[in-house]
């Protein structure tokens, strides 16, 4: 039950005075309450837990983290493919 998963906000509406969203989890779409993330917009990624968006996913830091992993233990001559990989994750 603890599982919280990232999903993409595809639609925002108002219900019972509460901001609600349709969130896409890789094909499965669920209704999600946005009461705790009033600033979220369509296209944002959020962490969703038991029907509530609890945090916005920061895309920039996701990319930074992955770029850091890319550099770990890589010899200088192998650095060439790092840029490609970082670009891939932004698509």
């Amino acid at each position: 039950m603890c599982l919280a998963v990232p999903g993409k906000v595809i639609e925002i509406s108002e219900r019972d005075m509460t901001r609600m969203a349709k969130v896409d989890f890789g094909g499965v779409v669920k209704d999600v309450c946005l009461a705790y993330l009033p600033e979220v917009e369509v296209g944002d990624y959020t962490i969703v837990h038991v029907g509530f968006a609890i945090q916005k996913l920061d895309e920039e830091s996701a990319i930074e983290t992955l770029a850091l992993f890319e550099k770990l233990g890589v010899l200088a001559e192998e650095f060439g493919d790092v840029g490609d990989r970082a670009e891939e994750t932004t698509s």
Partner: peptide, 23 residues
């Protein structure tokens, strides 16, 4: 699925394992 697949990448996992082993 974005932000799931990237953080399951086996090639990057190997780098992390190697770094831990070296530390």
């Amino acid at each position: 699925m974005k932000y799931l697949d990237e953080f399951r990448d086996p090639a990057l996992a190997r780098r992390l394992f190697d770094d831990i082993a070296a530390t």
